[in-house]
Write a protein that binds this DNA or RNA. Structure first.
Lengths: 279, 279
DNA sequence: CAGTGGTCTAGACCACCAC
DNA sequence: TGGTGGTCTAGACCACTGC
């Protein structure tokens, strides 16, 4: 290959050598929209566009880079699915403040954080102000929840729905499902469950969970949830299915967490005592 | 609001009532490309387009739905970032076979799977044939690895790079970093580390890891990794930072896993013995 | 009303693939 | 050579925002 570095061929009509004002040069091999995304991403990270502040408008960027607005739109689209930028209709594209929150699953329940919930601790650790809303409903068990709770599909469940915020910004949805009968016995059918929350009430009646499993998977944001989480279309979310079981390994509660991918870091810690010593 | 359900206004020029052949009707409120993506997604899930088979070509779909090719391209783009579809240049867009692999982190090391590696087990469980490649290099510690291994930036590390496949399809990258000195002592500077792998060799010299932490975060696929993983641009990946520490809580090995989001489900299991009984 | 982004089209050129 | 998808433009209309 002699022409390895083969002349980028300035074909596409827009490598027009305009030089009015601050035009930024875009080369050919990598798609323009990707290169522009790279540049904007870099500017954001360098603080040229501070968190919360708007990017230049699409027509402006279009002029700066000498490409059509559609191309700009596509570049910004990349940053949106990455969670770096959020668009507010009619207003502009804004740099998202993304202090990543770390969730240490294996510490959330054990300590049962006297007085403070796990979310509270996680959020304050990065200097954010936590808040949430809660509501309780009764629903029939879906195939999924029925399977996890080991009851028949359609069985009555109590679902405790919570929405979490950090500095007023939505960060997470968590729906906890319990079999109605158990929820009533434990007295967690009202919004307020008392000190220590649902798990403490379950412990009170001897059904305190001690075995936990979590399954993390991906999905693209589903309409309703995406809307609440202020997510961009197409942005990825973590879905966590959390199952808490009592001493006899009977599942007592299932929680489904939905959280915007880029806002969270998930942490797990554990120890394996080697049974037979080290060989 | 009297006009709550306000007439979708069939404005955009393309609600043209063409009826030649098998044209599928597209309504207005939701973007056309999103609706088309919904339809195609549904067809895939119903098996109309079987795993491994191609979607109809863009011009074909363009005719079917009565929209421009660009719109089709955008619809397919959604399916690509969701991991449902993979495009092979010049050939077409193919339905990705996605048997999701479940990785149970908390079981991977404890059992130290006599004879079989954790990946092997995980993959075969869903009926896939595992394979991998490995190589060993020496690199200076980056800020990240240095911090995690508690050495100076630039210190010499041995990195064991592995690439994993299932049925020949790339699924995961895993790079394990060890301080060179330790790696030499443990004898894991060659590709073959003997039965039980690196951790067993570390155990042999009394540095067997028993404390583990994992941190999961998101990233959009980085060029090189995305290429290897056969990923679509823009598709989300899990990054797992895994730290193994010995009895004295000294970190001995750090592994960075990169895996395509839609191919994996991550599972964790643990037990919290309540120290003071259940109140 | 002007400004923002959201979507869509038609037409174009490109790179890659298979024949 | 003809088919596939990848990218880009220009022009257009839309909805939402704020003045």
């Amino acid at each position: 290959m002699t022409s390895d570095d083969a002349q980028p061929r300035a074909t596409m009509s827009a490598t027009r050598g305009r030089e009015g004002a601050e035009m930024t040069q875009i080369e050919a091999p990598r798609p323009r929209f990707a290169q522009i995304a790279d540049i904007l991403r870099d500017r954001i990270q360098r603080g040229v566009h501070a968190p919360g502040s708007p990017l230049p408008s699409e027509p402006e960027l279009s002029r700066e880079f000498g490409v059509s607005r559609v191309t700009i739109n596509r570049a910004v689209g990349l940053l949106r699915t990455e969670g770096l930028v959020q668009v507010r209709r009619g207003k502009g594209a804004f740099v998202r403040p993304i202090p990543v929150i770390t969730r240490v699953a294996t510490q959330r329940h054990g300590a049962r954080d006297k007085g403070r919930g796990a979310y509270d601790v996680e959020t304050r650790r990065v200097g954010l102000e936590p808040s949430w809303t809660a509501s309780v409903e009764r629903v029939p068990a879906s195939e999924l929840t029925a399977g996890l709770l080991n009851v028949a599909v359609g069985a009555e469940l109590v679902v405790r729905r919570r929405k979490y915020f950090a500095n007023g910004v939505p960060t997470q949805i968590a729906d906890t499902y319990l079999v109605s009968e158990l929820a009533e016995k434990a007295g967690v059918t009202e919004e307020n469950t008392g000190p220590g929350g649902t798990y403490s009430r379950l412990a009170d009646i001897g059904r305190g969970p001690i075995h936990f499993t979590e399954e993390i998977s991906f999905c693209s944001a589903i309409a309703a949830e995406a809307t609440f989480l202020d997510m961009e279309p197409n942005q990825a979310v973590f879905e966590i299915l959390f199952v808490a079981s009592d001493r006899e390994h009977r599942p007592v509660a299932v929680t489904r967490h939905i959280m915007a991918g880029h806002q969270w870091r998930l942490r797990y810690e554990w120890t394996d005592e080697p049974e037979g010593g080290s060989e």
